[in-house]
Amino acid sequence: MLMLAFALAGCVRVHAAMALGSDDLVSGTIEIATVQTKPEDTGPPLTVSAELTDKVTLTPYAADGYVGQTVHFENLSFDQVRTLSQNLSSQSAKYQLNFRRSGDIVSLAGSINLTQLRPEGVDVQLKIAFPAQVGKTNGRVEQDNSVAWDAKAGQVTEFSATVQYSDQSGMSWTRWVLIVGAGAVGTALLVLVLALVAHRRNVRQIRQSEYNQSQLV
């Protein structure tokens, strides 16, 4: 579960853009900001645990009157994404994100709960790029196998997507069984053919031997 940190009462902006690789590693950026109400405002405070400091960096963000930070991350495993989400946690809004792999099928399911936020100034977007064509989703399909969602304040926005990866790194169980089965059948047929050929050769040799012996008598 990913719970993004921003103030409950203020206007917020969260732009999350992620790319999921066929190796189940996730890279991307998350812009987390609130409207600046006074000069010293710097946005929601964010921290990253020591175990992620080599893959996650924070940089200041300021645009359109919003101030905060941009979280950059690269090659995070699913577990590391969950750890990062815990680092960015607050009770203001809940952002659930779950990836699941089953063979060549990868599914995404989650929701963004913004029921406690007022509509004014809320700008929350999620975009995820997949390494293969998206088969089914409730989001907006864009180019380059990307899906986008726009979350609205005062409600829960659910999102889902299903993708079938190309079989590049390995062979699926079904294909393996079919190939092995076909190989076994082919081997059995080859053995049968060789046996028939050997049998016929033996018959010819016996008949030739009998003929030669009859000629000597």
Rank of each mutant, 00 (worst) to 15 (best):
Q36D: 09
G170W: 06
S172G: 15
G28F: 03
L117I: 09
V56E: 01
G65L: 00
I112D: 10
R82T: 08
N98H: 12
V67I: 10
R207V: 06
G139Y: 01
T115I: 10
T137Y: 00
D54G: 07
D24N: 10
A148E: 10
T47S: 12
Y165E: 04
A153T: 05
A109K: 14
N98R: 12
F6T: 08
L114A: 13
R140Y: 12
P45H: 06
D41E: 09
L25H: 12
Q86L: 15
D167H: 06
T59M: 04
A5V: 03
V124A: 07
D167E: 10
M3E: 14
A33V: 08
S90T: 12
A62E: 15
A182T: 12
L117N: 11
L126A: 03
M1S: 08
Q36S: 14
R101W: 03
F6V: 13
Q143F: 01
P131E: 07
P39N: 05
R204E: 11
C11R: 15
A198F: 08
Y66C: 05
T57Q: 07
T70M: 02
V156W: 00
L52R: 06
Q215N: 10
M171Q: 08
R118Q: 14
E158C: 01
P119K: 03
L196W: 02
E51L: 07
T157N: 07
S85V: 01
D79A: 14
S166E: 14
V217S: 15
A151W: 05
